[in-house]
Design a protein around this nucleic acid. Structure first.
Lengths: 223, 223
DNA sequence: CATTGACTTATTGTATACAAACAATTAAAT
DNA sequence: ATTTAATTGTTTGTATACAATAAGTCAATG
């Protein structure tokens, strides 16, 4: 569905900010459609929890710091499990896929210049590729469904945009450790490495949120 | 949404069997609505994975044995996590709620007569109450979202209907062990007990599925 | 007899129309 | 001046209408 992707992307990219009401008519006009497909897209987004119903219509969901913490806890659980299962069920072609993703990742961060959106989008995509390869290797097709719900969240999705070169390289190193564990068929090691990886991501996001809060506080004082 | 509940219930109760196409017009007529709200309900069910899109329209999703196994693995992970977190974060009122659910459970199974639908529905509901109380005590509001997706699945939902008195009593005993662990603030013990509880449920379902398969095979031979 | 092709039918997907609910603004009364 | 009432306007929710596409049937031809 086209309308679905349009609205979802606008939400996770922050174009539609939390609390904003989604007016069907204006959305319809914006993408040259009638209200009918717009409403159907909204129902899907509602089922995924990206928008919340009001008395009439819906608004973009706001995620609190606690939400982010809880969501990351679940992501840690799910991706850690995926990594441990991958260490058990991975085939040779799975390993190849993960290695390929990591090589692309390495290339992408070597070509990275601070705050260049184009190269960052590549990194985001390649990072996703690695994580998805692990899920595929876990041989549990339902994991993907759940992980997508803890990743496609506005703040989480954009967290990549405030990484620096060093942090990206560090991230690659952890990827290599995870891959090594999966290759050696060490489920616990793979799980723990993935845990640490995701938790670092969580701290990264929370630290950034803290900074934003402080900026707002300074603004308040400046008035 | 009323249309949503109508269709969802029909699917998880097995009135709409896997593979069956959902004809919008006939559904609309059946519940005295136009196609518009029906279609919106279908989009939600699609987002939840209970129906799958065809070239045009949707059909009720079929869950294979592997699906069931994978879904139960995830449920084990999620409910085990919920139990361990509940052991850490539970308040006194959380404990009260769980105890109350277990007392109701005990009453419900004492009043149970084999294959009496009325009393079974009560048991299903009270069982849910206990599991939800644990999720509430875990203090992670997002767990519920994910667990609901591994519970509201046709075969899983109906699995209760082929328990006997002894198995129900046994189930209650495990509930008590889980509660004890949560009361004593023993996260690992709570997690493991919950694991075992869910895995028993899984085996129960898979065994039943095996039986059904055998019945079908016998029918084939009889031809 | 089977296979291809055109035509007919049925059902979906999208647009529009209408009714109901909520919000907002203005007027009236205390 | 403030609060209440009423009326107007905007937006959602549902129904209907229309267009597009897939499927099924029947006939025609190899």
């Amino acid at each position: 569905m086209d309308a679905y992707e349009f609205i979802r992307d606008a939400i996770i990219e922050g174009k539609f900010i939390p609390g904003m009401r989604l007016a069907e008519e204006s959305l319809a006009k914006e993408m040259n459609l009638s209200r009918t497909p717009i409403r159907e897209a909204i129902r899907q987004l509602e089922a995924e929890g990206l928008v919340i119903p009001l008395k009439r219509g819906v608004s973009v969901r706001h995620f609190t710091n606690d939400d982010i913490r809880q969501i990351y806890d679940l992501r840690t659980l799910l991706e850690g499990y995926a990594a441990s299962q991958a260490a058990i069920h991975r085939t040779e072609s799975d390993l190849l896929e993960m290695e390929r993703a990591n090589i692309l990742y390495e290339e992408a961060i070597s070509g990275y210049v601070e705050s260049d959106m184009k190269s960052l989008k590549d990194i985001v995509q390649v990072n996703q590729k690695f994580h998805e390869a692990i899920v595929a290797a876990s041989k549990n097709e339902h994991i993907h469904f759940h992980i997508s719900k803890v990743v496609v969240v506005p703040i989480v999705f954009r967290s990549f945009y405030w990484y620096n070169s060093f942090q990206l390289k560090q991230s690659l190193e952890v990827h290599k450790i995870i891959l090594e564990a999966i290759k050696n068929r060490e489920p616990e090691r793979a799980r723990i490495a993935m845990h640490e990886h995701i938790y670092q991501g969580r701290d990264h996001v929370l630290k950034h949120l803290e900074q934003i809060k402080n900026i707002h506080l300074l603004k308040e004082e400046g008035k």
